[in-house]
């Protein structure tokens, strides 16, 4: 009888619905909801990381892709390539002395206008060019609008100082050919012009002469015709 009473007494004890609900809520808040929000955060973080990588990839690709080549040709030739952000991404010279010169200038990543100023000042300070020297500045780009704008800016900036300044926009398709023959785009353009007067002119012969000599020859041949 007494044992039965103990059993019956404990049988009357029940957990209230409120207590069960509080426990369910506690477990949900601390386990399942956290797990969901963790997964949500995890996927958000993954998307963000992928977007960051993609943006970085696009930015880096854009930064290292040249959209314009500018060459300065006189007794020596220097060419630099410029990206969409108007920054210099590569500089080339075609003889040892000029190579040393451009290395000392540290032109990479500078604005193309500053780079052009630095090169011209350095060439002048080393007496490679002066106000009477024939200076050819070529701006080659597939973007005609950009090409014309830069051409006008450069021409306006230097034409007062250099009497024999020639600024031009060579065909962008010449860039690969010029690279293949290890020449600046400006000098390759001059070669193409010279070839019109002298179809037998070899590229090697042309390569070894200065652009001012070539220009002089062109002018002479033009006069003779």
């Amino acid at each position: 009888m007494t044992l039965n009473k103990i059993k019956k007494a404990f049988d009357t004890i029940h957990a209230k619905e409120e207590l069960k609900e509080k426990t369910r809520q506690y477990i949900y808040d601390n386990v399942y909801n956290k797990k969901h929000s963790f997964n949500k955060n995890k996927s958000n973080r993954l998307v963000l990381a992928l977007a960051t990588v993609l943006i970085m990839f696009i930015t880096i690709s854009t930064y290292i892709t040249p959209v314009m080549a500018i060459s300065i040709d006189s007794q020596s030739s220097i060419q630099f390539e410029v990206n969409k952000f108007n920054r210099v991404i590569s500089v080339s010279a075609y003889d040892d002395n000029t190579n040393k010169l451009i290395q000392s200038l540290n032109l990479k990543h500078s604005n193309y206008e500053d780079a052009l100023d630095l090169i011209i000042n350095e060439l002048e300070s080393k007496n490679i060019i002066d106000e009477d020297t024939y200076v050819n500045i070529s701006i080659s780009t597939k973007d005609n609008k950009m090409g014309n704008k830069v051409l006008n800016e450069v021409e306006n900036k230097y034409k007062e100082h250099y009497k024999n300044l020639n600024c031009n926009n060579p065909d962008a398709s010449y860039q690969n050919e010029a690279k293949k023959h290890n020449m600046s785009i400006g000098k390759y353009q001059e070669y193409k012009n010279s070839q019109q007067n002298n179809p037998n002119l070899s590229i090697e012969e042309f390569k070894n002469s200065c652009i001012d000599q070539c220009e002089h020859k062109n002018q002479q041949k033009g006069k003779n015709k």
Binding site: H14, A15, K20
Partner: peptide, 16 residues
């Protein structure tokens, strides 16, 4: 969550 809800329903009285 389903298993947990079942356990809460089934064993709450015992725990209490």
């Amino acid at each position: 969550e389903q298993e947990t809800n079942r356990a809460i329903e089934l064993y709450s009285d015992t725990v209490k």
